[in-house]
């Protein structure tokens, strides 16, 4: 980890409607793909697309509320924090996301927590 926090670089991902409600799309990236989720009420979240359990692609899971169920073994992760629901333990790194004028932007610097 570097001593100086880099300025967040925001990457534009296009209109929010390109992500299905209760679904996800993927941002391909050398440093690991990022899954971009959209909830029923149009909130958008971003997690590293790797389940902390066995690396399953979270973008392919079923989304409900603020949760995604990993497609490989049904671990359920909180979309905002990436934390696995008890009794499972683990965390997928999350990334800051914002929506401006109906367009989604994600920062490639993982969230502070």
């Amino acid at each position: 980890m570097s001593a100086v926090m880099p300025e967040p670089t925001w990457v534009a991902l296009g209109p929010i409607d390109s992500i299905p409600r209760l679904g996800a799309r993927v941002l391909r990236r050398d440093g690991g793909d990022i899954a971009i989720f959209r909830t029923t009420d149009d909130q958008v979240f971003a997690l590293l697309n790797r389940c902390p359990h066995k690396g399953g692609p979270l973008s392919e899971g079923i989304v409900y509320g603020r949760t995604v169920a990993c497609p490989l073994h049904n671990w359920c992760l909180d979309l905002a924090t990436g934390q696995a629901k008890a009794p499972d333990e683990g965390c997928a790194p999350s990334f800051p996301v914002r929506v401006e004028d109906g367009h989604v932007l994600v920062s490639l610097t993982p969230g502070a927590d």
């Binding site: 990457v11 390109s18 299905p20 941002l27 391909r28 050398d30 490639l108």
Partner: peptide, 12 residues
Amino acid sequence: AHEFTSLRQVNA
């Protein structure tokens, strides 16, 4: 089509 394509690709 959205199911089978990524949103974007970046070198980062």
